[in-house]
Design a protein around this nucleic acid. Structure first.
Lengths: 221, 221, 221, 221
DNA sequence: AATGAATGAGGATTCATTCAT
DNA sequence: CATGAATGAATCCTCATTCAT
């Protein structure tokens, strides 16, 4: 008899590969990226993709679950590593922006309503919120976080902002996203918003120039 | 033969009808709503839809242009009606959330990249940004708006937030969106944070409860 | 305003065309004939086929219903035209064999179990059985039909026999089917067996020779 | 290395297992049952199945050959055991119905045309027909069997009838099949049909009731 | 100018068959 | 040899778009 991890090792690697590829492809092409496209990028046959994820929704579900896990891990890390709760909170918020989770809601929003209501997803969300709650409570106690801001607000703002603006050039989208996140963080502080440090404002002209200079970052579906 | 104005009135009415219907349908079913679905909701034949908009992108374009016009009108109105530039700014931001533009970016993001780079759209964006610039400058002068916040930041934050979170129940989505908008506004102020008034925080438990109670707001595509 | 039958005439013609084509193609290629094949034979696009019959089962259903109607019409005709109930019965049985309904059960048997339980099909079957019942009763009264043979037996035997033996050369299949039908009819008579008239038996050697001489009648799927 | 007989025994057992499993699965799910389904039911991997039968047709071939062997064995048995040729004949005909060969033709008919023309199958058929010929000749000599009925007729009628009506509930299908077989047998007799003994007829109402009461016997493919 | 049927290219999914373990 | 994962061609079905009425 074989060791149980043998073939499974290969399969597990493929599964992981497909999930990560799907995340990338969805982020780049939007939620209507085709299954074939994903399979091609992952360098596997369509059949392999379907062996692992029996249909489109199953793949969405796996991608979303994976994304949630990353956010949870991020929240736990920052909570442990940062002395100040506020620092944990802001590192979490900014870290989410870097997780390349653009698709998290975009995918869910366009096709996967049922996916979003899966028990696993629900539990994952709850787990994440519990951790955020601890950070938020600590920040309340520290006096750094406004008391009318809860873990639900943090989660909501992050969910809204991490999507970025897919029609814009990638770097401009990232910059606007980061600036908006900083503004939200500033709005959450009790004191006069020492954050962010005075960087130049994004003026109307800045935006217009950068919009007219560059083409779109991403091919449409 | 009829007078040309007669038919034109009819046609113009149909065009308007289709645009508004499309906005609704896109907002409800996501950006992959089919042309037939839109035609059916507008109670016209597919042929009529295509007579007005030669292809899918043309329809997107019209919907986005229409949305931009609404935002422009809103910005102009608040600028004229409000004495304080800050009030104009915050009324604009909050007004956008009420325009039901959920689809503005969601549509654009998933399918209409090329649409987003159309000259008309570019000009509309520029026009809107110019008006915002006036408001923003006035607010800077007033001392109510942080100097490191520009019209581009306002536009960016609004664009990111007005989409809402389509997988959540409608009311919860709206509430989270409004709370996030208020946090952003608070983050833009120079002074501590008179906004929003102390309302109870959205806690982790609030969010978990409301997520598990209600089903999703919208059938997936 | 147009006459209501205008466009519909075209569509109705297409619907009929597709049903008859499907019957032929199923009869020739077996129940796993592809939708595309049927569409090609009918000289319509796949979309047209699907507009009329939303999925494979719907097409099956239509084909089966159509076949039932033909059997019903046949039963009614023979009942009216023949003086002797026995003649009506045997003309019905033999007529069914000529209806090219080879697929009737073969299709149903392989894929369309749910189709077979449709209310329409059920009603059609009942209607047919009622007519057969009248013929059968009259034949009982005539004294030509054994009293332990009912309309259900007639229907059952016909259903079993009309399929033919698709692997055999067409003419051999037809001949065996016809001989079997005559044997069944003979078995239903009260008197010795005036039917069939003494034709030469199909001997083992006949069959072996004809099986080895000719290739199969039909390309496999 | 092991003795060759060892593995061979295992392999032979597997081969037999797969054939019998395939027969069952085909009979239950129709001729389009998948290879994976058969492998799963036989509790072997797909690779094992393909080691024994290089492709789908090879498996069909084996199943059909096996069925033919059973019919041959049955014919030989009845010939030896029955004193009266007629009894041998009718026991053969009825025995075939019990062999669960429903698929014999149904499979062949839908997919395996080429299979049906294989030399092995041809020889098997010939062998079976020879045996039937002996029985038929004896029955002619006995005066029990009509002289215009040959071994080919027997084979044909049996082939047509043993398939049953897969859309009907199992027991109803079996009953109709048995009744039809008895009618055929009656039709083959020289004398006024002492067979079958007077059982109640299957009336229209019987059939309608039983069709509406029970669901179909088999899930469609 | 409106209608809705027809078209067919394209995407999701399945499954016979191959191959690495 | 057995296993079950990988493959990709083939099939079902959808939907943007065209066209006859």
């Amino acid at each position: 008899m074989r060791a149980p991890g043998d073939l499974r090792a290969d399969a597990r690697r493929n599964r992981e590969l497909i999930i990560q590829t799907a995340r990338t492809v969805f982020a780049e092409q939007g939620p209507s990226a085709t299954m074939d496209e994903i399979a091609r990028h992952a360098q596997v046959g369509a059949g392999t993709l379907y062996r692992h994820f029996p249909d489109r929704d199953a793949l969405f579900h796996a991608v979303l679950t994976d994304a949630l896990e990353r956010m949870i891990a991020l929240a736990e890390t920052t909570r442990k590593q940062e002395g100040l709760a506020w620092d944990a909170l802001s590192r979490f918020v900014e870290g989410c922006a870097g997780l390349r989770l653009d698709l998290l809601i975009s995918v869910a929003g366009s096709q996967a309503t049922q996916v979003a209501t899966t028990p696993e997803i629900g539990e994952g969300r709850a787990r994440l919120l519990k951790i955020l709650d601890q950070i938020v409570s600590a920040a309340h106690d520290e006096g750094t976080l406004r008391h009318d801001v809860g873990a639900g607000d943090v989660m909501g703002a992050v969910s809204l902002l991490i999507r970025g603006l897919p029609t814009l050039p990638t770097d401009l989208s990232a910059e606007l996203k980061n600036r908006a996140l900083r503004l939200v963080l500033a709005g959450m502080r009790t004191d006069p918003a020492p954050i962010p440090p005075p960087v130049p404002a994004m003026t109307a002209n800045d935006l217009i120039r950068r919009l007219s200079t560059t083409g779109p970052a991403k091919p449409a579906t």
